[in-house]
Nucleic acid binder design. Structure first.
Lengths: 344, 344
DNA sequence: CTGTTAGCGCGTTCAT
DNA sequence: ATGAACGCGCTAACAG
């Protein structure tokens, strides 16, 4: 793989010393314009690429940023990853991905894996950082790693860990949804999906209760049903909802996959959406735009989300000061899955 | 990031030479069991991890395998990637992913990117290797890279390029679908989606014609409608089909996303699936199992698919002989989107 | 079986 | 502004 040509080769051919070549390559020191021209000619003659391993060894860094996430198959993560990679490469960093296959245990292997690779930074999405009370051992692992390498936790937290958190403004996102639904005339609203031990569930439920209270609307606690984050979970929570004596006229799903499950289950029960029930998703993954009906959802701005994450970790790596906590806006995207409640 | 301890440190503490430590680390030479015990004690006392950059520099390799694919957001690619990563790590290799965002141009950047990283091997999925007549420049790029680093092309080809190809047996997959549909009583079958300039489209159309011919069934060429590979494409091709004077009783979609689009469009037109039209997908992505109705599809065995790809590239990297072309079985997965044609 | 030593390719003081 | 020389951490050839 390596083009066997080294800086010695081009130094010889350009009749200068290796240090001069190195200086030109790194731009870390002034070089006479003329000799610079001469060397650069040789450089491009051989299409020279400095050896990465040697450079890493000398620099004591890898210019790689590790990413641990629970499931690259999930459109939320894959979309965000794609954006992050785009910006990372633009900033001359590489993203090394570890897919934990939804296993908190495997995340430990991921930590070891990325450690072995001496990544310069670490981005942790989902998984253990989303646990409301993570096992001490898991917490300890992250604490150790983050003590050595700049770490940023996305949409999660980890007590006693020195990491920057970048979160999307779920509070505002949920508030926007509630405002939208109530403006349509809904007062009976449910919040479906998620898991009780996961922070995003708690956060969104909390935001929901707050906004409902602000509008002087009551929350029917039996309409907060948790089960998980998958399409299957969405099917189940709607089934559960239908068992209840009373039903809401609108439901907010913890994420789009759950919303899609709700849509699927509703079809089976011949419940017309949005006519009989309004449904709102969360995350605005690309599937939201192609479901039937197309799903109204709360969107992360994936581009600026990914940009901010990478920007932040790079700044931390370079030792710049960065806020310990960053918030990204969310935005309601209105499609076809909601309407005013019909009088029944 | 690096635990400042080196093999010199442990050599000193274990009272041996660095080479002995190195030998133990690599297992490349016999070491006295006793001294081995002694050293290993020190090794784990410090939880020693050899510096990767140094090792790479010395070994002239990176133990990284580059992966270029068009869209990590596509469940086919993300699922396959997850499997490949799993096996790669088990074999002590790392996968460095480059997501080309559906741009053939960006693939060139990806090639350069992975080249810079001196990956030991390259896996190319989709994109230019799927073009029936790729631009010469693109072909040239891959030829140059594959001359230096073992390359494997998945479900595609590239003329005049020294690369191993690993393909799934689309021929058999399509045949299984046709056999299944005809066994149900269908004789009027269409094949929807894909693009004319893409090999998989051509291959599957070819397989379709062959199997239909083998069964003495005619192919209505107007029922082969191409548009693309997305959900939106699926919607469009069904719309186009409905414009035709005659319609098939069953359609095979070029992939599951197209099939999902067909399902969506059918709902809008109040076409009951499978009652009025049977639909079969291809790839068996996880969405197939959660659509309404659940989609009958042809499945790659993702696990053995990913395993084979990684196994093959690793063997090539190690200089072992590998077949230049490998075929992976596909398997029909029957769900709810097909039934016997109703008499109309 | 073990120790010594010379690279691997590049960045970087320290002189000049 | 430029060059000589050393260090980064590890492997492997060469002695012993």
């Amino acid at each position: 793989m390596s083009e066997k040509v080294t800086i010695y080769d081009i130094a010889r051919e350009a009749e200068v010393s290796v240090s001069t070549v190195s200086r030109i390559l790194t731009g870390n020191a002034p070089v006479n314009p003329e000799t610079k021209q001469k060397v650069e000619a040789v450089l491009k003659k051989y299409d020279f690429r400095p050896n990465r391993a040697a450079r890493n060894l000398s620099n004591q860094r890898s210019t790689m940023i590790g990413v641990i996430l629970p499931d690259i198959t999930n459109p939320f993560f894959s979309t965000l990853f794609a954006e992050m990679q785009h910006y990372a490469i633009a900033k001359d960093y590489s993203l090394l991905l570890f897919n934990a296959m939804n296993s908190l245990e495997l995340e430990s292997e991921g930590l070891a894996y990325l450690s072995r690779h001496q990544v310069d930074g670490l981005i942790f999405l989902g998984g253990r950082v989303n646990e409301i009370t993570p096992p001490a051992a898991y917490q300890q692992e992250i604490a150790e790693v983050s003590a050595k390498v700049p770490t940023i936790i996305v949409n999660g937290t980890m007590p006693d860990v020195d990491a920057v958190t970048v979160c999307t403004d779920e509070q505002s996102g949920i508030a926007q949804v509630v405002d939208y639904l109530t403006a349509l005339g809904h007062t009976r609203i449910g919040l479906l999906g998620g898991s009780d031990h996961i922070t995003v569930t708690r956060n969104r439920q909390h935001a929901f209760r707050e906004e409902m209270a602000r509008l002087d609307l009551g929350v029917n606690e039996s309409w907060l049903i948790t089960d998980g984050f998958s399409i299957e979970s969405g099917e189940k929570v709607l089934e559960a909802l239908l068992q209840l004596p009373e039903q809401p006229t609108a439901v907010i799903a913890i994420n789009d996959l759950v919303a899609l499950g709700i849509l699927k289950s509703a079809r089976r029960h011949h419940i017309d959406i949005p006519n009989q029930l309004s449904v709102v998703g969360f995350d605005d993954v690309y599937l939201a735009a192609v479901s039937t009906p197309e799903l109204t959802s709360v969107s992360h701005n994936y581009e600026s989300f990914g940009h901010t994450i990478v920007e932040t970790i790079v700044n931390r790596i370079k030792g710049k000061d960065v806020p310990t906590s960053i918030m990204i806006d969310m935005q309601l995207v209105i499609r076809d899955s909601c309407q005013s409640p019909t009088v029944r």
